[in-house]
Amino acid sequence: MTKRRVRMVILCEDSQQEAFIRRFLKGMGWNTRELRVEKSPSAGGAAEQWVRERFPDELMVYRQRRKRAASALILMIDADRKNVADRITEIRSECRLRQVPFREDGEAVGLAIPKRNIETWIHYLNGATVNEQDVYPKLDRERECRTAVTSLVLQCRTTGLSQDAPPALTAACDEYSGRIQLVE
């Protein structure tokens, strides 16, 4: 075993998102030691803004780094009242503002945008019927998402997501299989 070198940077809003995505990546075969988590220093709406503003910097760093070694970047940000496409437009605008070209085909840069938020996915994966408009209760402890993540990993590794999965979750899984999994 060689010394630690991070291959994946995760930009996210809070510990719940981190717990979810990190466990998912672990389930998909990533080693925790290959991951670097950068989460927002503040909570609430400020967190969404922080992730969005930080993204162009990390995208530039990703492009520099991938010249030397296979790397990946994942951004997770709740859609909240907006839809997924609107959030992507905002991220794209942030890149334009900073004069950083948005991600291109073939770049291992994934956007995971839970709608309405990460709890929607967790409750769905735990077997509840959900929609993307309602707000679902937060978990008492972040790591309680473990069962939901295990279910997601199982589906991704076998049959794929079912037809009734929230569209934003399906889109995020497509991002993973289309952009990130190739890095593995």
Partner: peptide, 17 residues
């Protein structure tokens, strides 16, 4: 410095369980 976050991740995952 490289070793702190991986240990914290393992610790926080295990804490409470």
């Amino acid at each position: 410095l490289t070793e702190i976050q991986p240990w914290l991740m393992e610790l926080s995952d295990a804490c409470g369980d």
